[in-house]
Design a protein around this nucleic acid. Structure first.
Lengths: 211, 211
DNA sequence: CGAGCCATGTAAACAGTTACATGATTCT
DNA sequence: AGAATCATGTAACTGTTTACATGGCTCG
């Protein structure tokens, strides 16, 4: 259901083509939910069949065409209903923790490399999420600006704060991942004091640390 | 691949039936990875067909039977290979943050109820994970004891520490979820000062808080 | 003998990934 | 003319959920 929710929510900002949705899924909303175009196009068709969105075909140049989707009143009602549902938390599925639990089966060097990559990835992710968070609060984010333009000014504050709140959660998670992975690196170093230096060297040359 | 990894890793502790695996997936490993029996039984058959595990049928009473699976040498090699692979972090899919980003579409009461449920759930989860963490470090955990019995004593420390490390990650995540949800509750209260009390009352009577 | 546990499946539907495919428009 | 971007799909496969099914064992 999350993909549908993401699509409907996105279309409340402005009408879009499937291609536009793709673009948003590569940035902004894409950090909250991502889907490839092979899932987006069919799903928009399904939403249209359900009457939740409406698509109109529009010419593009001489022969080209594109399909612009807007959310319908029914779609807004459905969105509101989904948003009001309390879905009980999903059972956790955690590939990182699963793998870490059995690190005794990996070479220490490779466990180290995995945790180092984790640090690199989530350090960059945290930066990115924090940037988004700040852009939202400052109302610099382009899609957010369009969204706000369509609704009364007295609701702007709530809309902005909710989005910032969501990103603050992403920042928090990313920071947690980094702290956790560092804890793991320290553990590996304490278990294999002899390997430490060689791996550290490998990491410096390997992972193209961006910080 | 995570399900297979979880199954193979589990079978390194001791041979098990599909039913035993189910039991473990309802506790211990189940916090790291979960699958219903409808996925476990066919997957074990597939692993057997691949030669990664070996199943022997054993009588149970007069007419009953069960199938006990053990990991093969090939399975151990495969497990080691998977553990050494550095899988680059998956694209984030985050239903909670997605939903929170569009809370302006929910009734404040219902947004509040969702975050309150989040707090309750992850508070309980944190307790549980912390308990597991402590049981592991103290080597009280039954499956862990069996696992340690099969390997040289000089490897015990590493095995125990890796498992504890994984659970420490779960504890960290759960705590992050609670903090985040509380941040959201505070936000809702600041946006709707008038609603606060009524919702608070509803929460106290509603969610059977266990702390 | 009934309740609760042990034990194992199939099938349909839904969600997500990966591979394969096509073509127009715009800018340089 | 070629590259970058806009635009949209189908199909096969893998993974996960949900519904439907069955039957034996053990203990009170």
């Amino acid at each position: 259901m999350s993909l549908r929710l993401a699509l409907l929510a996105l279309l409340t900002a402005r009408p879009m083509t499937g291609f536009d949705v793709m673009g948003q899924f590569d940035e902004s909303v894409g950090y909250l939910w991502h889907a490839p175009h092979t899932q987006i196009y069919p799903e928009l068709r399904k939403l249209e069949a359900l009457g939740l969105v409406e698509g109109v075909e529009v010419a593009r140049g001489e022969r080209g065409k594109k399909r612009i989707y807007s959310i319908t009143d029914l779609g807004k009602t459905q969105l509101r209903d989904w948003m009001n549902e309390v879905d009980e938390p999903r059972r956790d599925r955690d590939p990182y923790r699963l793998k870490a639990a059995y690190f005794e089966w990996a070479e220490p060097e490779s466990a180290y490399a995995q945790l180092a990559a984790h640090v690199v990835h989530y350090t960059a992710a945290e930066q990115l999420y924090r940037q988004m968070h700040d852009d939202i609060l400052a109302r610099r984010h382009p899609l957010l600006k369009q969204r706000l333009a369509n609704i009364p000014a007295d609701q702007h504050e709530a809309v902005v704060r909710f989005k910032a709140f969501a990103y603050s959660g992403l920042v928090r998670r990313a920071r947690g991942e980094v702290d956790w992975a560092r804890e793991g690196l320290a553990l590996l170093e304490s278990l294999h004091p002899d390997l430490k230096l060689s791996v550290d060297t490998a990491r410096a040359g390997d992972t193209t640390s961006t910080t």
